[in-house]
Design a protein around this nucleic acid. Sequence first.
DNA 1: ATAATTGCAAAAGCTTTGCATGGCC
DNA 2: GGCCATGCAAAGCTTTTGCAATTAT
Lengths: 137, 137
Amino acid sequence: MKTIDFSKKLADKGLRVTSQRLAIIEAIYALDNHPSAEHIIEYVKENHPSISVGTVYKVLDTYVEHDILQRVKTDGDVMRFDPLLDKHHHLYCVESDQIEDYEDEELDQLIASHLKKKGIKNFEIKDFKLHITGNFK
Amino acid sequence: MKTIDFSKKLADKGLRVTSQRLAIIEAIYALDNHPSAEHIIEYVKENHPSISVGTVYKVLDTYVEHDILQRVKTDGDVMRFDPLLDKHHHLYCVESDQIEDYEDEELDQLIASHLKKKGIKNFEIKDFKLHITGNFK
DNA sequence: ATAATTGCAAAAGCTTTGCATGGCC
DNA sequence: GGCCATGCAAAGCTTTTGCAATTAT
């Protein structure tokens, strides 16, 4: 995805296009491994030394609100961000902080139909996400 | 589970039994909804006003290390704790911070056999957990 | 006795907030 | 021009840490 596409993406959502916002979304795609805010700040500062921490957090919030990013839960206390919006699951490495996307429509169907058939008492299911732990090799 | 059982549970793991440790594990069972450290502290202070925050965190860490508790991931930045150790999944309410356990061996089998059959390239699966979001009713 | 646990308080780490300045539309 | 976004710095919150005093075994 090129810079110009990011501009359009923001404009289409009614968001103002600023160089900080572009740098942040470019960073997330460039970093590519569900970066934390800290990783993003570090990366963006290379070409944007004066960007401030508060701005990055505000922009990330804005992106999550406008469905440009998803938050990714981790065991630790840092939030990480994922630009993939299609339904997918995550692979968590038990030895490092690596997180990868895992898409599997067949699995989605399998789980969805099982849950639909069986139902959960007193609970209306909206969505589900599988957290798979293991080792990359 | 009675107090005496908690004592035994700790002793069996080679942990020293202290009134703080007992109060903390009792609190978790009493609170019963995957309490946060803050909830636990609040509850324990009723009968144990002088307990300190640091102690509670240290004891929770000890319990997790010794497989007496599991950590539960949340969207927010607070860690929560679960005394159920059997394999299970979690139901997350989208409107509140309620979290419930969900056990479903049939589902576990279904997912396990699908993943085993299909495999994941460059990844060795150790375990998986489903995060189901929706509404309690 | 002695090794582990507690309480206290300080500090760390991540994230949020308020407000004046500056930039986009 | 008007409004929104940014930078800065301070503060907030949860969690961690160090150490002396206390307690369990």
